[in-house]
């Protein structure tokens, strides 16, 4: 049912769209029909797949980087309140500054475009991992915490046996947000770089199609970006389920 209903809605909307475009004779350079978009996807398959590959590589690199860096920073933050107080505002600063505003700078500073795009996307994706993992590492059952203290558990044992497992649900929630953000960051950064004529990713294809009024291809690229985002989300949801199955409230009592 969870799959059937959304699919029914999708089919209904697509049919309505197709009918509207056909009946009202909307020109394809304004709104292409779903059927035309599908045809374009097939026709430009190799071009679009190449672009998707580029965007996907940047997204995944940025995602992995933000997961690793974010976790390391979170570990630093929970070592002492002092470190967290001193550095947390800068994590926020990084988060609230629009990436479009800093992307041109980074692209100028970093010679290799691919690397600069990865940096931009990482900046966007980093914050949810930091804040969620920090919260998770702090969200330890106070009773268990006293129990560990009572048994003279070392800092390491407490981290490994208590804090990390307690943080996992929060960590995964952070990852899910950050995966989507990594894709958004990658696309936005490509847009900024693309105007300089250096990109070859999906965002570049969208820009180019715009200039050439090739609206069906623009939609086709858009569809690929959405599908990528949804796929990433589903993959992480599956990972989350696998890791937390059987013990965390969020993953129990769900069939």
């Amino acid at each position: 049912m969870k799959v059937v209903w959304p699919l029914l809605v999708a089919v209904f909307l697509l049919v309505m769209w197709q009918v509207w475009v056909t009946v009202a004779q909307v020109p394809a350079f304004l709104v292409p029909s779903p059927w035309l978009i599908a045809q374009t996807l097939v026709k430009d398959w190799s071009l679009l797949m190449g672009a998707l590959g580029v965007t996907l590589r940047i997204t995944l690199l940025a995602f992995v980087l933000s997961a690793v860096l974010g976790t390391l920073i979170a570990f630093l933050f929970v070592q002492s309140r002092w470190i967290e107080t001193a550095f947390f505002p800068y994590a926020v600063l990084l988060q609230v500054t629009p990436i479009v505003a800093i992307a041109p700078l980074i692209i100028i500073w970093v010679k290799d475009t691919a690397i600069s795009l990865v940096i931009c996307a990482t900046i966007v994706a980093l914050f949810p991992v930091i804040s969620n993992t920090t919260l998770g590492l702090r969200s330890v059952n106070p009773g268990l915490s006293s129990f560990f203290k009572l048994h003279h558990a070392s800092r390491w044992a407490t981290l490994w046996r208590l804090r990390i497992p307690s943080a996992l649900p929060y960590f995964f929630a952070g990852l899910r947000i950050s995966a989507g953000l990594a894709l958004i960051g990658a696309v936005v950064a490509e847009f900024v770089a693309g105007t300089g004529g250096t990109g070859t990713g999906l965002a570049y294809q969208i820009l180019q199609s715009g200039y050439q009024l090739n609206i069906p291809r623009m939609f086709a690229a858009l569809v690929l970006i959405s599908v990528t985002g949804v796929t990433l989300f589903l993959l992480l949801a599956a990972l989350n389920k696998w890791a937390l199955a059987g013990w965390h409230d969020s993953e129990v009592n769900q069939v």
Binding site: N141, G143, L144, F147, R161, L162, P165, L168, W247, H248
Partner: peptide, 10 residues
């Protein structure tokens, strides 16, 4: 303790 305070993941 008052609660069982078990590790839910173990």
């Amino acid at each position: 303790f008052q609660d069982a305070t078990l590790m839910p993941w173990a």
